[in-house]
Each structure stands twice: as C-alpha cells, then as structure tokens.
C-alpha cells in the first residue's frame, strides 16, 4: 500500500474491493499503544511508506524545538510516530508549492465575508455578573480560598 493511493485503501477497508488479506491493513496500534489487538502477532503487516530520513524536513532537532514550544512531555514511541506523520503531512502540503498563484490573489480568512449587513452589532459595554462563578472556580484542579494553586513558577532574580 503506498501512502497516497488512498482511495484504494479506503475501498479495501469498505469491502468494495476484495481485500487481499489483513496484511494490507495498517495496524498502527500494535506498533505503538497496542490499543487494538486484531492484528495477530507474526502476521506480516505492510505499513505505509514513510519518507526516508534524508528527505525529512522536520529533523529531530526541529522536532525537539517544536515539542518544547508546544510544552509536551512525550514518550519515545510517540516521538517516532509524530515526527514520521509530520513529515508525511508536509509531503502532502507540497501540493501548495505547485500552485500558480500571483501575489495579487487576496487571502481568505473566512469563507463567508463578514459584511456589515450581517455582522453582529457591538454590545453595550456594561458589566454583567457571571452567575456561574463558583462553578467555574470549582472546576480548577486545585484551589485554596478561591485562588488556583500551581507549583513554583520558574523565575530569575534580577540584579
């Protein structure tokens, strides 16, 4: 199964073409979290073809930087899966590079234009009491006297 002969894979999954065998199914979870156990051990599983390491745009170094910015603690098997999938997605995004688009083409940030005629008018700037304040505070993982408790905040002493 090649990665982007996608329709064929869906069809195998939907039973529209006779799936050759379970060998063509991607058993991601056996490789990582083992959440499903319907891929018997020992059966050959043909996994999607991932880009080779030298083609990777997101190198381990860039990946570490992103993980740091995103504030994630990751397990080793998660790191491997996530970086591979990121690079696979970047390959799909490369289609945009082939797009012949002149600088004059404007950007669209919302499909339906926010014209004044259909935009909500601004509300009066008045204070409204929040009746659910206690419920909101009660949702915090740890509180003390209606303050939310957190561990030490990293800081530096300024001289």
């Amino acid at each position: 199964m090649t990665k982007l002969s996608g329709l064929q894979s869906f069809m195998q999954g939907s039973g529209q073409k006779d799936p050759a065998s379970k060998k063509t199914e991607s058993c991601f979870d056996r490789r990582t979290a083992s959440r499903y156990n319907d891929c018997p051990e020992g059966e050959e599983v043909l996994l999607p073809q991932y880009p080779s390491r030298q083609d990777d745009e997101i190198t381990p170094e860039i990946f570490d930087h992103l993980v740091d910015l995103a504030a994630f603690h990751l397990e080793p098997e998660e790191r491997e899966y996530l970086r591979k999938e990121l690079n696979a997605q970047l390959k799909a995004i490369r289609e945009l590079e082939a797009l012949d688009v002149s600088p004059e083409v404007p950007i669209t940030s919302h499909g339906v234009p926010f014209k004044a005629a259909i935009s909500a008018p601004l509300r009066e700037d008045v204070i409204e009491a929040c009746p659910e304040a206690d419920d909101i505070v009660a949702g915090a993982p740890e509180t003390e006297l209606r303050y939310i408790v957190v561990p030490d905040i990293p800081h530096e002493e300024l001289e």
């Binding site: 329709l7 869906f10 199914e25 991601f28 499903y36 997605q89 390959k91």
Partner: peptide, 18 residues
C-alpha cells in the same frame, strides 16, 4: 467510498485526512 473497517486506516494521518 462507503464506511471503511475499524483499524483499516487509523494511524495514517494523511490517508485519514483524505
């Protein structure tokens, strides 16, 4: 296509998106 099998696509984030 119609509905695919549980486990047939999950894990392949590109294929799933299509």
């Amino acid at each position: 296509t119609t509905a695919f099998k549980i486990g047939a696509v999950y894990g392949d984030s590109v294929l799933m998106q299509y």
